[in-house]
Amino acid sequence: MAQMSTVETSGGTRGPALPAWLKSGLLTIVAVLIVMGVWQVAAIAFDVPVWLVPKPSDFMARFVSDFPLLLHHAFETSKTLLMGFALGVLIAVPLAFAITSFGALERGLFPVIVFLNIMPKTVIGPILIVWFGIGPLVAVLIVFLMSFFPVLVDSMSGFRAVDPRLYYITRSMGASPAQTFFRIRLPASMDHIFAGMKIGVVKAVEGVIIAEFIASSAGLGYLIMRASGFMDMTLMFSGLIMAALVALVFNSGMSIAEVVLMPWARRSQ
C-alpha cells in the first residue's frame, strides 16, 4: 500500500529526479544484493557445505533450473490460499452483518467466536486429516479458519461504526432494508472489512504453508517438507523464495483491490 500511494503523489512534480517508487525500489534491490553478496562471500570464505547453508548462487541456480516445478507448486498453493481466503470472506462478512444486526446472536455467538479466535488454528489440522484425509481440502479449511476471524472481527466493527442517526435519515427517505444495506451499511463498512481482509490474507499465507506441511499432497509447503526429507537444501531455499513471491502477489493484490474498490479512500497522506 505504501508503494501505491507514493505512485500517486509522485505526479511528476519532482522534475528530472527519479520517481519515488523507483528510488525506493532500487534501494530495495541494492539492499538485497548487498545481503546476498555478503552471504555468498562468507559462505565461500568459511567453506560452508551446501547441505548446511547453500550459497545464494546455489539456490538461485536451482530456482531457475527447477522453475517449472516451483511454479506448479506455487500455483497449487495459490489455489488453496485463494479458495480458503474467499470462503473465509464469503462467510465472515455476512455472519458479521447478522451478528451485529441481532443482539441475541451476538450474545450467543460472540463468546464462541472469541474462543475459536484465540485457539491456535493449526491444532485442528490433525482432526481435519482424520475427517477428510491428507489433501488440499484440509489445507483449504485451515486457510479458511486462519483468515476467517480477522475478517469477521473487523467487519463487525465496520457494521457497528455506522452512526445510528444516519438511519433516521434513510428511514425518512423510506429506504428498504436492502437499500440500507447495499447503499449504506456495506460500503460504509468497507474500510474496516478491507483492514480485516489485509490481516486475513497475511494469516492465510502463513496458514497455507503450515497446512501444506502437515496435511497436503501438493503446494510449496509440501514441496519444502519433501525436500527437507531428502536434505535438499537448495530446493528448500528456492521454495522459500517462491513462497515469499506468492505472499507478495497476494498482498499486492489486496492493495490493488482496495484502490479499485474504494476510490474514495485514496487520502494519500
Partner: peptide, 11 residues
C-alpha cells in the same frame, strides 16, 4: 433532516 454532524457518506 440535518443533524449537528453532517452524517455524509464518506464513500
Amino acid at each position: 433532516i440535518v443533524f449537528q454532524d453532517h452524517l455524509l457518506l464518506d464513500f
